[in-house]
Design a protein around this nucleic acid. Sequence first.
DNA 1: ATAAACCTTGGAGTATAGTCTAGAGTCAAG
DNA 2: CTTGACTCTAGACTATACTCCAAGGTTTAT
Lengths: 135, 135
Amino acid sequence: MLKIGELASLAGVSRDTLRFYEKHGLIIPNQRTESGYRLYSNIDVERISFIVSAKEVGFTLNEIHQLLELEVTKDKKSCQDVKEFVDNKITIVNQRLLEIEKIKHSLQTLSDACCGGDEPATQCTILGALNEQAR
Amino acid sequence: MLKIGELASLAGVSRDTLRFYEKHGLIIPNQRTESGYRLYSNIDVERISFIVSAKEVGFTLNEIHQLLELEVTKDKKSCQDVKEFVDNKITIVNQRLLEIEKIKHSLQTLSDACCGGDEPATQCTILGALNEQAR
DNA sequence: ATAAACCTTGGAGTATAGTCTAGAGTCAAG
DNA sequence: CTTGACTCTAGACTATACTCCAAGGTTTAT
Ligand SMILES: [Zn+2]
Ligand SMILES: [Zn+2]
Ligand SMILES: [Zn+2]
Ligand SMILES: [Zn+2]
């Protein structure tokens, strides 16, 4: 049984983060001491590894919540369910990627058109384009 | 002279958005009526076009604030200053792009390893990987 | 016995970009 | 002269993922 600080340092997150995750239903300590201290088990260390690596892979806490539910009920879920979940996320990430690429190209076009010289920016094509564009 | 609702519909933003922009120093009406109504000029329509298109190109309101300052003082600023600003933004966007690509590849690897079959997910490589990975 | 270290709760603050609401005042038309 | 459309302010609320703080209770070490 681990107290919150022990779990925190084992898992490499802050005590506040653990309480935050608890408030959002991601890890709930299975016991409390008489005085109200949270008590965690070793399984919770793994649970946090799971959260941390899922975060690194780009899942939001909300999605991780759903993933954890898949984890817990994995005998009732199929590989198909899990893969579908990940593939949906890939679709979302792809959309975000396209958006950002579009932004990058717009900025690049803007930059390329500007001479970048020393003269006053009164005729700067960048400022000009931002003024016109929205027509 | 335009009242807030008129400017809003001309510019295609909400009245609330205009007041929000004002609070953040992006557009400040040059006059008020006796009764306190904001009065905008036609120049403000262009100013909002500027904001809207800068937003579309991926600038944050904060950055647009700085861009507007470049705009206003453009006789004191050079093309170089403006281009530098845009190029810095391109660098940031590029970093974000790389991050998201990394996430995409991680997810793809995860997905590819899973059979996606009908059997219970007890042995699912995705769930497995998320449990291990963080070591 | 007492101080340090740790724990508890609730709530506020951070950044982003607004939206929505309430309660009140203003303006034009019928 | 009243109704409806419009405006004002201040403040709350949205989502995301925490972090920090205050004020108090508990444990551990010396
Ligand atoms: Zn130039
Ligand atoms: Zn230029
Ligand atoms: Zn499988
Ligand atoms: Zn699988």
